[in-house]
């Protein structure tokens, strides 16, 4: 081990989450120090970046993410985000960011009414956030999704603001990068797969970058995102 300290990244552990171990491993793989932080914790254990991992916190009772956001640790997460600290919400974590209003809109049930677990293609719409800096504009990523509530919805005036403000980070697309309804797995408005806040420090996305960190396991497209987060820590 080198003496240089690695950036500490908190992965919040919620009961019912199932992607926390993958997220911890992903952070370590790109040189971060992954720190599991229990949802009852009042602080982020000295971490300078946060992952809200995927899964089914509290069994998705009430609404996906709705109960988890009232955990004690979320006060610290909100403060961290307000101070400009990087936050990545993946899948259920994205649903949480919507529930607490750090990102706009809400998730409805997929239009197919089915849980969808498969690879999708995503077009990069923003790369000026520290979390997105290793991506190229227009680049097409291939990442897996695994959700039943990923059908992003917002009122028409909110959708207008989201588009005008450039909050869309990732859109579902065809393998060649075209936006097409047939390439939209869940019915999300404007094919929204990921949103970033105005300051660029809070990113929410339905696809799972932490599951695409090694060529041997299907691809490395997720590594650029996780590396961006770790470097921003």
């Amino acid at each position: 081990m080198s003496g240089k300290s690695r950036p500490r990244v908190a992965v919040v552990i919620f009961p019912g989450a199932n992607c926390d171990r993958d997220a911890l491993g992903a952070v370590e793989l790109v040189g971060g120090e992954a720190v599991p932080v229990w949802h009852q914790s009042a602080d982020l254990a000295g971490c300078t970046a946060v992952i809200l991992p995927g899964g089914f916190s509290y069994g998705d009772y009430l609404r996906a993410g709705a109960i988890a956001v009232h955990s004690p640790v979320m006060t610290a997460v909100r403060r961290h985000a307000a101070e400009g600290g990087p936050v990545l919400g993946i899948c259920n974590g994205f649903q949480m960011l919507l529930e607490i209003g750090l990102l706009p809109g809400a998730m409805l049930m997929n239009r197919t009414l089915r849980f969808i677990c498969r690879d999708v293609h995503l077009r990069v719409e923003r790369n000026d956030s520290p979390l997105l800096k290793h991506l190229r504009l227009g680049q097409v990523l291939r990442l897996p999704i695994a959700h039943k509530e990923g059908n992003w919805f917002a009122a028409p005036e909110v959708v207008r603001d989201v588009e005008a403000g450039g909050a869309v980070a990732l859109r579902y697309c065809t393998p060649t990068g075209e936006i097409d309804d047939g390439a939209n797995p869940n019915g999300a408005l404007n094919a929204v797969a990921g949103l970033v806040n105005l300051q660029g420090n809070v990113l929410g996305m339905m696809p799972h970058p932490e599951r695409r960190m090694r060529a041997l396991l299907g691809g490395e497209d997720g590594a650029a995102l996780i590396r961006g987060l770790v470097e921003a820590a």
Binding site: L62, R63, A66, H70, E99, G105, A106, L108, A154, A155
Partner: peptide, 8 residues
């Protein structure tokens, strides 16, 4: 605060 999501 929690029982309903005013967005939807």
């Amino acid at each position: 605060e929690v029982l309903a999501n005013p967005v939807i």
